[in-house]
Design a protein around this nucleic acid. Structure first.
Lengths: 200, 200
DNA sequence: CGTCTATTTGAATGTACTCAAAAGCGGTGG
DNA sequence: CCACCGCTTTTGAGTACATTCAAATAGACG
């Protein structure tokens, strides 16, 4: 993807939240630095203090953690047009509990802590934009949380398919299982059952 | 609780996030209106557009929803010093998916949508403070989410006890069960087992 | 006390897990 | 071109965790 296209995607994703002037949008976009990562690259290791927020313009990132039993738990995927970051670590300068990994060859626009603070100083209205963005993420996580707490594995898996249709066939089932919160073996059995019921 | 004490609690809870002047703090606190609710009062019904954010100064609120199968799922409790609100509904003016209920006779300081916007206009730095507050809530929910997805019911219940020690004995077990994500019967069995292991 | 609701207990069932092994699939070298 | 390797996915048997439904018991409140 050409850099200008990536920047346009970023600008579009933020423009929904506030009426920014051309100049403000320009300053916003140019605060980000492009970067690309090969498949399996680790963009953040648990224990590090995160200094980047990533906006994905191509490929896909995964944010996950290792639980007390050594099992991976996937918090979210970030395909094109989505954000990935450990905000707690980024904002509060504390060690991250999450890993961020490239599931594919992935292009991002990244912004560091200092650049973000300077951006806020330069365009104070963005403070509000980012608050709204974080609130959306909170609302989205609330949804997912309530669903996991109240639904069967089958429902959660179907929800993954609906929520991330663009990831169909791009992600190994072992990884999807860590998102749904089940074992890969059981996910395989769910899929077999779904085929029997007439779904591909 | 005397109003002044309640306001002091609110001021203290916000002062951790930014160095505000006396004047700013004063404007912040006086944007809130005190209110009190009897046990079982509904502060917000799902389907309504939420127009209040609540800061609890005495008693306890519960934020929950009814899932597709008609079961209650508790997102969070808000005892003294905690916040309760459906931010998605409040910010985006959309129908709430959550109910907010008083589990006890509860005193709050409440702020409506207009008052909050005026407050932001009057003290722009608060925009940042609220962003940080929301980020904390997001981080807290991430923790809880990962735990629910990766831990047994027993671990989740113990975590409730650790997280909300001040609620010990104040909340019916049927409600705690909706927080942990299990049936009240099974929670009872967990407790029986814990007693056998030597815990009260 | 009696009534209402909350909690506990028990038996049968279902959902998802573990462990083990087999099958599929893409790449690589002979 | 195919035989083999390593990795992912599937299948199966046995087990553990949690649920449902039903009934007994305990607490709270008038």
């Amino acid at each position: 993807m050409v850099l200008a296209d990536a920047q346009a995607l970023l600008a579009a994703s933020i423009a929904r939240f506030a009426d920014l002037t051309e100049d403000e949008l320009q300053r916003f976009v140019s605060a980000f630095t492009p970067a690309r990562f090969p498949k399996k690259a680790m963009l953040l290791h648990a224990g590090e203090v995160s200094d980047k927020e990533f906006f994905v313009t191509a490929g896909c990132l995964r944010t996950y953690m290792i639980d007390a039993n050594g099992k991976e738990v996937t918090l979210s995927f970030a395909p094109e047009g989505w954000w990935a970051a450990d905000l707690a670590s980024f904002t509060q300068r504390m060690p991250s509990r999450f890993h961020i990994e490239a599931l594919e060859h992935t292009d991002v626009l990244a912004i560091g802590h200092n650049a973000k603070e300077e951006l806020f100083a330069s365009v104070p209205r963005l403070e509000r934009v980012f608050r709204l963005l974080v609130q959306r993420r909170l609302a989205a996580l609330q949804d997912r949380f309530v669903q996991v707490l109240s639904s069967s594995a089958e429902v959660c898996y179907n929800d993954f398919l609906v929520k991330y249709p663009m990831l169909h066939g791009r992600i190994p089932q072992t990884v999807i299982a860590t998102y749904v919160g089940i074992t890969p073996e059981f996910l395989s059995k769910l899929r077999a059952r779904a085929v029997g019921k007439g779904r591909a």
